[in-house]
Protein backbone atom coordinates (compact mmCIF):
# COMPACT_ATOMS: atom_id res chain seq x y z
CA UNK A 1 0.00 0.00 0.00
CA UNK A 2 2.57 2.66 0.99
CA UNK A 3 4.32 1.97 -2.30
CA UNK A 4 1.17 2.80 -4.27
CA UNK A 5 0.70 5.96 -2.23
CA UNK A 6 4.28 7.01 -2.84
CA UNK A 7 3.83 6.37 -6.54
CA UNK A 8 0.66 8.45 -6.64
CA UNK A 9 2.39 11.27 -4.77
CA UNK A 10 5.23 11.19 -7.29
CA UNK A 11 2.76 11.36 -10.17
CA UNK A 12 0.93 14.29 -8.60
CA UNK A 13 4.16 16.15 -7.97
CA UNK A 14 5.24 15.64 -11.57
CA UNK A 15 1.79 16.77 -12.69
CA UNK A 16 2.16 19.99 -10.72
CA UNK A 17 5.53 20.67 -12.34
CA UNK A 18 3.88 20.18 -15.76
CA UNK A 19 1.12 22.63 -14.89
CA UNK A 20 3.74 25.12 -13.82
CA UNK A 21 5.64 24.71 -17.11
CA UNK A 22 2.47 25.19 -19.12
CA UNK A 23 1.41 28.29 -17.18
CA UNK A 24 4.87 29.70 -17.78
CA UNK A 25 4.46 28.95 -21.47
CA UNK A 26 1.11 30.75 -21.73
CA UNK A 27 2.47 33.67 -19.71
CA UNK A 28 5.43 34.06 -22.05
CA UNK A 29 3.15 33.63 -25.08
CA UNK A 30 0.72 36.34 -24.01
CA UNK A 31 3.59 38.54 -22.86
CA UNK A 32 5.53 38.25 -26.11
CA UNK A 33 2.45 38.40 -28.34
CA UNK A 34 2.94 40.67 -31.33
CA UNK A 35 1.07 43.87 -30.64
CA UNK A 36 1.33 43.14 -26.88
CA UNK A 37 -2.37 42.93 -25.86
CA UNK A 38 -1.62 43.73 -22.22
CA UNK A 39 0.19 46.97 -23.05
CA UNK A 40 -2.51 47.79 -25.60
CA UNK A 41 -5.31 47.51 -23.04
CA UNK A 42 -3.31 49.62 -20.58
CA UNK A 43 -2.76 52.37 -23.12
CA UNK A 44 -6.37 52.43 -24.27
CA UNK A 45 -7.48 52.77 -20.65
CA UNK A 46 -5.08 55.68 -20.13
CA UNK A 47 -6.50 57.35 -23.22
CA UNK A 48 -10.00 56.93 -21.79
CA UNK A 49 -8.87 59.09 -18.88
CA UNK A 50 -8.01 56.43 -16.27
CA UNK A 51 -5.21 57.28 -13.88
CA UNK A 52 -2.11 55.07 -14.34
CA UNK A 53 -2.90 53.35 -11.05
CA UNK A 54 -6.51 52.56 -11.89
CA UNK A 55 -5.56 51.45 -15.39
CA UNK A 56 -2.93 48.99 -14.20
CA UNK A 57 -5.35 47.63 -11.60
CA UNK A 58 -7.91 47.09 -14.36
CA UNK A 59 -5.35 45.34 -16.57
CA UNK A 60 -4.26 43.15 -13.70
CA UNK A 61 -7.87 42.05 -13.21
CA UNK A 62 -8.05 40.95 -16.86
CA UNK A 63 -4.73 39.25 -17.44
CA UNK A 64 -3.52 38.52 -13.93
CA UNK A 65 -0.44 40.71 -14.27
CA UNK A 66 0.43 44.38 -14.75
CA UNK A 67 2.09 45.63 -17.92
CA UNK A 68 5.04 47.32 -16.21
CA UNK A 69 7.59 46.45 -13.60
CA UNK A 70 10.21 43.78 -14.14
CA UNK A 71 9.37 40.58 -15.99
CA UNK A 72 9.88 38.63 -12.76
CA UNK A 73 7.45 40.71 -10.74
CA UNK A 74 4.83 40.38 -13.48
CA UNK A 75 5.39 36.65 -13.53
CA UNK A 76 5.19 36.36 -9.75
CA UNK A 77 1.98 38.33 -9.73
CA UNK A 78 0.50 36.09 -12.42
CA UNK A 79 1.41 32.88 -10.57
CA UNK A 80 0.01 34.06 -7.26
CA UNK A 81 -3.30 34.83 -9.01
CA UNK A 82 -3.37 31.35 -10.47
CA UNK A 83 -2.75 29.82 -7.04
CA UNK A 84 -6.03 31.41 -5.97
CA UNK A 85 -7.78 29.82 -8.98
CA UNK A 86 -8.17 33.27 -10.46
CA UNK A 87 -7.78 33.06 -14.24
CA UNK A 88 -8.51 36.71 -14.84
CA UNK A 89 -11.48 38.29 -16.57
CA UNK A 90 -12.80 37.66 -20.05
CA UNK A 91 -12.24 40.47 -22.50
CA UNK A 92 -15.01 39.58 -24.96
CA UNK A 93 -17.72 38.92 -22.34
CA UNK A 94 -17.10 41.99 -20.16
CA UNK A 95 -16.87 41.41 -16.45
CA UNK A 96 -17.32 37.63 -16.49
CA UNK A 97 -14.49 35.75 -14.84
CA UNK A 98 -12.65 33.32 -17.07
CA UNK A 99 -12.77 30.62 -14.38
CA UNK A 100 -16.58 30.73 -14.50
CA UNK A 101 -16.74 30.53 -18.29
CA UNK A 102 -14.21 27.71 -18.46
CA UNK A 103 -15.96 25.72 -15.73
CA UNK A 104 -19.35 25.92 -17.43
CA UNK A 105 -17.82 24.84 -20.75
CA UNK A 106 -15.91 21.97 -19.11
CA UNK A 107 -19.16 20.49 -17.78
CA UNK A 108 -20.44 20.08 -21.34
CA UNK A 109 -17.25 18.66 -22.71
CA UNK A 110 -16.90 16.09 -19.90
CA UNK A 111 -20.35 14.67 -20.68
CA UNK A 112 -19.63 14.49 -24.40
CA UNK A 113 -16.19 12.95 -23.94
CA UNK A 114 -17.37 10.33 -21.45
CA UNK A 115 -20.22 9.19 -23.69
CA UNK A 116 -18.05 9.18 -26.80
CA UNK A 117 -15.01 7.42 -25.34
CA UNK A 118 -17.01 4.67 -23.63
CA UNK A 119 -19.05 4.02 -26.77
CA UNK A 120 -16.09 3.91 -29.12
CA UNK A 121 -13.89 1.86 -26.76
CA UNK A 122 -16.48 -0.88 -26.33
CA UNK A 123 -17.20 -0.96 -30.06
CA UNK A 124 -13.51 -0.98 -30.98
CA UNK A 125 -12.43 -3.76 -28.60
CA UNK A 126 -15.21 -6.16 -29.55
CA UNK A 127 -14.86 -5.61 -33.29
CA UNK A 128 -11.06 -5.69 -33.03
CA UNK A 129 -11.10 -9.17 -31.52
CA UNK A 130 -13.51 -10.36 -34.20
CA UNK A 131 -11.31 -8.87 -36.92
CA UNK A 132 -8.24 -10.64 -35.52
CA UNK A 133 -9.92 -14.02 -35.12
CA UNK A 134 -11.42 -13.95 -38.62
CA UNK A 135 -8.48 -12.17 -40.24
CA UNK A 136 -8.33 -14.48 -43.24
CA UNK A 137 -12.01 -14.20 -44.07
CA UNK A 138 -14.02 -11.55 -45.80
CA UNK A 139 -15.58 -10.43 -42.51
CA UNK A 140 -12.18 -9.75 -40.96
CA UNK A 141 -10.93 -7.89 -44.01
CA UNK A 142 -14.10 -5.83 -44.18
CA UNK A 143 -13.94 -4.95 -40.49
CA UNK A 144 -10.33 -3.82 -40.59
CA UNK A 145 -10.84 -1.76 -43.72
CA UNK A 146 -14.02 -0.19 -42.33
CA UNK A 147 -12.21 0.49 -39.07
CA UNK A 148 -9.22 2.11 -40.73
CA UNK A 149 -11.46 4.14 -42.99
CA UNK A 150 -13.65 5.43 -40.18
CA UNK A 151 -10.52 6.05 -38.11
CA UNK A 152 -9.23 8.10 -41.01
CA UNK A 153 -12.41 10.09 -41.45
CA UNK A 154 -11.64 13.40 -39.80
CA UNK A 155 -14.09 14.38 -37.10
CA UNK A 156 -15.05 17.53 -38.92
CA UNK A 157 -15.99 15.56 -42.02
CA UNK A 158 -18.17 13.24 -39.94
CA UNK A 159 -19.65 16.17 -38.05
CA UNK A 160 -20.30 18.31 -41.13
CA UNK A 161 -21.97 15.43 -42.97
CA UNK A 162 -24.18 14.62 -39.96
CA UNK A 163 -25.06 18.29 -39.46
CA UNK A 164 -26.00 18.80 -43.09
CA UNK A 165 -28.05 15.63 -43.24
CA UNK A 166 -29.76 15.46 -39.86
CA UNK A 167 -30.31 19.04 -38.78
CA UNK A 168 -30.71 20.89 -42.07
CA UNK A 169 -32.14 18.39 -44.55
CA UNK A 170 -34.14 16.27 -42.08
CA UNK A 171 -34.33 18.25 -38.82
CA UNK A 172 -34.36 15.35 -36.35
CA UNK A 173 -32.02 17.03 -33.88
CA UNK A 174 -31.43 20.61 -32.82
CA UNK A 175 -28.11 22.38 -32.57
CA UNK A 176 -29.17 25.64 -30.96
CA UNK A 177 -28.68 26.78 -27.38
CA UNK A 178 -29.45 24.02 -24.90
CA UNK A 179 -30.86 26.20 -22.17
CA UNK A 180 -33.19 27.98 -24.56
CA UNK A 181 -36.61 28.43 -22.98
CA UNK A 182 -36.64 25.36 -20.80
CA UNK A 183 -36.11 25.78 -17.06
CA UNK A 184 -32.76 24.19 -16.21
CA UNK A 185 -32.94 21.59 -13.49
CA UNK A 186 -33.66 17.97 -12.92
CA UNK A 187 -36.80 17.69 -14.99
CA UNK A 188 -37.79 15.63 -18.01
CA UNK A 189 -37.93 18.45 -20.53
CA UNK A 190 -34.46 19.73 -19.65
CA UNK A 191 -32.86 16.28 -19.70
CA UNK A 192 -34.58 15.42 -22.96
CA UNK A 193 -33.27 18.66 -24.44
CA UNK A 194 -29.72 17.87 -23.32
CA UNK A 195 -29.94 14.39 -24.77
CA UNK A 196 -31.29 15.57 -28.10
CA UNK A 197 -28.40 18.03 -28.29
CA UNK A 198 -25.74 15.59 -27.21
CA UNK A 199 -26.72 12.47 -29.16
CA UNK A 200 -25.45 13.69 -32.48
CA UNK A 201 -22.08 15.03 -31.26
CA UNK A 202 -21.49 11.85 -29.24
CA UNK A 203 -22.38 9.70 -32.25
CA UNK A 204 -20.09 11.67 -34.52
CA UNK A 205 -17.31 11.25 -31.96
CA UNK A 206 -17.84 7.52 -31.46
CA UNK A 207 -18.08 6.82 -35.20
CA UNK A 208 -14.91 8.70 -35.97
CA UNK A 209 -12.80 7.25 -33.16
CA UNK A 210 -13.68 3.58 -32.62
CA UNK A 211 -11.58 2.61 -35.65
CA UNK A 212 -8.38 3.43 -33.80
CA UNK A 213 -9.24 1.04 -30.97
CA UNK A 214 -10.28 -1.60 -33.50
CA UNK A 215 -6.94 -1.49 -35.31
CA UNK A 216 -4.83 -1.44 -32.16
CA UNK A 217 -6.81 -4.33 -30.68
CA UNK A 218 -6.58 -6.33 -33.89
CA UNK A 219 -2.82 -6.04 -34.34
CA UNK A 220 -2.29 -6.67 -30.64
CA UNK A 221 -4.44 -9.82 -30.66
CA UNK A 222 -2.68 -11.07 -33.81
CA UNK A 223 0.74 -10.69 -32.20
CA UNK A 224 -0.38 -12.42 -29.00
CA UNK A 225 -1.88 -15.28 -31.03
CA UNK A 226 1.60 -16.18 -32.27
CA UNK A 227 3.02 -16.51 -28.75
CA UNK A 228 4.15 -19.83 -27.37
CA UNK A 229 2.00 -19.72 -24.27
CA UNK A 230 -1.15 -19.63 -26.40
CA UNK A 231 0.00 -22.69 -28.32
CA UNK A 232 0.85 -24.37 -25.01
CA UNK A 233 -2.57 -23.54 -23.62
CA UNK A 234 -4.27 -24.98 -26.69
CA UNK A 235 -2.11 -28.12 -26.54
CA UNK A 236 -2.98 -28.60 -22.89
CA UNK A 237 -6.58 -28.73 -24.05
CA UNK A 238 -7.76 -25.67 -22.13
CA UNK A 239 -11.23 -24.51 -23.02
CA UNK A 240 -11.47 -21.83 -25.73
CA UNK A 241 -12.96 -19.48 -23.16
CA UNK A 242 -9.88 -19.75 -20.95
CA UNK A 243 -7.52 -19.39 -23.91
CA UNK A 244 -9.46 -16.31 -24.90
CA UNK A 245 -8.92 -14.87 -21.46
CA UNK A 246 -5.19 -15.43 -21.82
CA UNK A 247 -5.26 -13.66 -25.16
CA UNK A 248 -7.41 -10.73 -24.13
CA UNK A 249 -5.50 -10.02 -20.91
CA UNK A 250 -2.29 -9.71 -22.91
CA UNK A 251 -3.73 -8.06 -25.96
CA UNK A 252 -5.60 -5.27 -24.24
CA UNK A 253 -2.44 -3.76 -22.70
CA UNK A 254 -1.61 -1.29 -25.47
CA UNK A 255 -5.23 -0.15 -25.44
CA UNK A 256 -5.18 1.10 -21.88
CA UNK A 257 -2.60 3.75 -22.57
CA UNK A 258 -4.56 4.79 -25.65
CA UNK A 259 -7.80 4.86 -23.68
CA UNK A 260 -6.63 7.02 -20.81
CA UNK A 261 -4.77 9.34 -23.16
CA UNK A 262 -7.80 9.79 -25.36
CA UNK A 263 -9.82 11.08 -22.41
CA UNK A 264 -7.36 13.91 -22.04
CA UNK A 265 -6.89 14.32 -25.74
CA UNK A 266 -10.61 14.59 -26.34
CA UNK A 267 -10.83 17.68 -24.19
CA UNK A 268 -9.02 19.49 -26.92
CA UNK A 269 -9.82 17.14 -29.77
CA UNK A 270 -13.55 17.69 -29.49
CA UNK A 271 -12.90 21.15 -30.98
CA UNK A 272 -14.19 20.16 -34.40
CA UNK A 273 -17.33 18.40 -33.22
CA UNK A 274 -18.14 21.18 -30.82
CA UNK A 275 -17.77 23.93 -33.36
CA UNK A 276 -19.63 22.01 -36.08
CA UNK A 277 -22.59 21.27 -33.77
CA UNK A 278 -22.50 24.62 -32.00
CA UNK A 279 -21.93 22.73 -28.75
CA UNK A 280 -20.89 24.99 -25.84
CA UNK A 281 -17.75 23.07 -24.74
CA UNK A 282 -14.09 23.77 -24.03
CA UNK A 283 -12.90 23.41 -27.61
CA UNK A 284 -15.45 25.83 -28.95
CA UNK A 285 -14.48 28.27 -26.19
CA UNK A 286 -10.80 28.00 -27.14
CA UNK A 287 -11.50 28.62 -30.83
CA UNK A 288 -13.85 31.53 -30.22
CA UNK A 289 -11.43 33.15 -27.77
CA UNK A 290 -8.67 32.96 -30.39
CA UNK A 291 -11.03 34.42 -33.01
CA UNK A 292 -11.87 37.32 -30.69
CA UNK A 293 -8.22 37.76 -29.60
CA UNK A 294 -9.37 37.19 -26.02
CA UNK A 295 -6.06 36.02 -24.63
CA UNK A 296 -6.99 35.68 -20.97
CA UNK A 297 -9.83 33.35 -21.89
CA UNK A 298 -7.54 31.49 -24.29
CA UNK A 299 -4.91 30.86 -21.59
CA UNK A 300 -7.61 29.70 -19.18
CA UNK A 301 -9.14 27.21 -21.61
CA UNK A 302 -5.73 25.94 -22.68
CA UNK A 303 -4.66 25.50 -19.06
CA UNK A 304 -7.72 23.44 -18.19
CA UNK A 305 -7.32 21.20 -21.25
CA UNK A 306 -3.73 20.61 -20.20
CA UNK A 307 -4.76 19.72 -16.64
CA UNK A 308 -7.22 17.19 -18.06
CA UNK A 309 -4.45 15.54 -20.07
CA UNK A 310 -2.17 15.42 -17.01
CA UNK A 311 -4.84 13.71 -14.93
CA UNK A 312 -5.48 11.22 -17.74
CA UNK A 313 -1.76 10.46 -17.90
CA UNK A 314 -1.62 9.72 -14.19
CA UNK A 315 -4.61 7.40 -14.46
CA UNK A 316 -3.02 5.66 -17.47
CA UNK A 317 0.22 5.01 -15.58
CA UNK A 318 -1.57 3.66 -12.52
CA UNK A 319 -3.83 1.46 -14.65
CA UNK A 320 -0.88 0.12 -16.55
CA UNK A 321 0.90 -1.14 -13.45
CA UNK A 322 -2.33 -2.71 -12.21
CA UNK A 323 -2.97 -4.54 -15.48
CA UNK A 324 0.51 -5.71 -16.48
CA UNK A 325 2.38 -7.70 -13.81
CA UNK A 326 5.58 -7.50 -15.85
CA UNK A 327 5.67 -3.72 -15.55
CA UNK A 328 4.80 -3.94 -11.84
CA UNK A 329 7.73 -6.27 -11.25
CA UNK A 330 10.12 -4.16 -13.32
CA UNK A 331 9.20 -0.90 -11.60
CA UNK A 332 9.64 -2.54 -8.19
CA UNK A 333 13.31 -3.27 -8.75
Amino acid sequence: MPKAVRQLAGHLLRGLVMVWIVTTFTFVLVHEMPGNPVQAQYESLIEKGFSPDAASRQVAVTYGFVPHGSLWSQYGHYLSRLLHFDLGKSVSAQGVSVAKEVASAAKWTIGLVLAGVVLSFALGVVLGVVAAMRRNSRLGDGLSIAGSLLHGVPQYVMALVLVTLLTVKWPLFSTGDVNGLIQPGFNVAYIASIISHAVLPATAFALSSFGGYLLTMKSSVVSVLGDDFILAAELRGLSPGLVFRYISRNAILPLFTVLALSFGFMFGGAVFIESAFNYPGMGALLVSSIGQRDYSEMSGAFLLITVAVILANIVADLLYTVVDPRVRRASGT
Partner: peptide, 18 residues
Amino acid sequence: DFVLTIPGFPLLLVLSTV
Protein backbone atom coordinates in the same frame (compact mmCIF):
# COMPACT_ATOMS: atom_id res chain seq x y z
CA ASP B 1 5.28 13.47 -20.94
CA PHE B 2 5.89 17.13 -21.52
CA VAL B 3 5.28 16.82 -25.27
CA LEU B 4 2.15 14.77 -24.60
CA THR B 5 0.98 16.99 -21.79
CA ILE B 6 0.76 20.00 -24.00
CA PRO B 7 -2.14 18.65 -26.03
CA GLY B 8 -1.19 18.86 -29.71
CA PHE B 9 -4.17 20.36 -31.41
CA PRO B 10 -5.02 23.03 -28.81
CA LEU B 11 -1.31 23.90 -28.77
CA LEU B 12 -1.42 24.42 -32.54
CA LEU B 13 -4.48 26.62 -32.07
CA VAL B 14 -2.71 28.70 -29.44
CA LEU B 15 0.46 28.89 -31.53
CA SER B 16 -1.58 30.10 -34.50
CA THR B 17 -1.94 33.44 -32.69
CA VAL B 18 1.78 34.06 -33.12
